[in-house]
């Protein structure tokens, strides 16, 4: 059997909100390592990888590896029924075709359970090679979300360029152009407000803003976002999840042909 218990149930709610519009169905893999998921969007342009390590849960039991095929919109519907302070338990017995979500209020005076039917999903698991990135930008996640939202009112694509000057986000559209430059800034009172740019090589890549805005739905999970860029490679937009793991979004660039 498989069982996990998470006192901070709101984390799972936030994870679902971050991915439910990007991915329709996904296999959630449960192993001794933790609870993980990898899936592509329906156009195979973006890939999301989620890991919640077993040590991060208050209770985690996985007798044997299982893969649970889940429709994310349906899982999101169920998790929306959990209160923000609720303790969440997820349970699946071997050989059954459903998974149970149990929500307990902090004072234990309300206990709900929801059973979700599992489905067979024929998904490809992609191997993500280790890469040395030309540039890695760490910045406040809310700032990144704001930039993507602002630029998408002007254009459909964003050019992200990292130079010694900083990181520049540019777009162009029918009404004109926009450029937003963020410089390295480590002299802030709070580390979560810092912008840190590690650059090995200058890099400039073009991406669809629609996807960036979708990734930014993970903003409530982490105060900082890490953007890793290399020429002619998918960008990695990573949100760390407390002490538990991460949600990583990979987005294929637009390349001039």
């Amino acid at each position: 059997m498989f069982e996990l218990r998470l006192e901070q149930g709101s984390l799972l709610k936030k994870v679902m909100e971050a991915i439910k519009d990007l991915v329709n169905d996904a296999n959630f893999d449960c192993s001794a390592t933790g609870f993980s998921m990898q899936a592509m969007d329906s156009s195979h342009v973006a890939l999301v990888a989620l890991l919640l390590r077993s040590e991060g849960f208050e209770h985690y039991r996985c007798d044997r590896n299982i893969s649970m095929g889940i429709n994310l919109a349906n899982m999101a519907k169920i998790l929306k029924c959990a209160g923000n302070d609720d303790i969440v338990t997820v349970k699946a017995d071997d050989g059954t075709d459903s998974v149970t979500f149990m929500f307990e209020s902090p004072t234990q005076d309300k206990i709900s359970d929801f059973e979700l039917k599992l489905m067979d999903i024929d998904s490809e698991h992609l191997g993500i090679p280790e890469a040395e990135y030309d540039a890695i930008v760490r910045m406040p996640s809310a700032e990144f979300a704001r930039i993507c939202k602002d630029l998408s009112s002007i254009g459909d694509t964003v050019v992200i360029s990292v130079t010694k000057e900083g990181v520049k986000f540019s777009t162009r559209g029918d009404i004109g152009t926009a450029n937003i430059v963020c410089r390295q800034n480590t002299s802030v009172d709070k580390p979560e407000e810092a912008t840190i740019i590690e650059m090995k090589e200058m890099v400039s890549l073009t991406f669809a803003l629609r996807y960036m805005n979708s990734f930014a739905k993970a903003t409530p999970l982490a105060s900082q976002v890490t953007i890793s860029l290399s020429s002619d490679l998918p960008v990695v937009v990573e949100y760390k999840i407390a002490e538990m793991g991460y949600i990583r979004f990979y987005l294929a660039p637009k390349i001039e042909e």
Partner: peptide, 14 residues
């Protein structure tokens, strides 16, 4: 013109 690439052209089935 910029062509949108697919993830599957960078990462392959494991």
């Amino acid at each position: 013109v910029n062509q949108q690439k697919q993830i599957t052209s960078f990462f392959t089935k494991s």
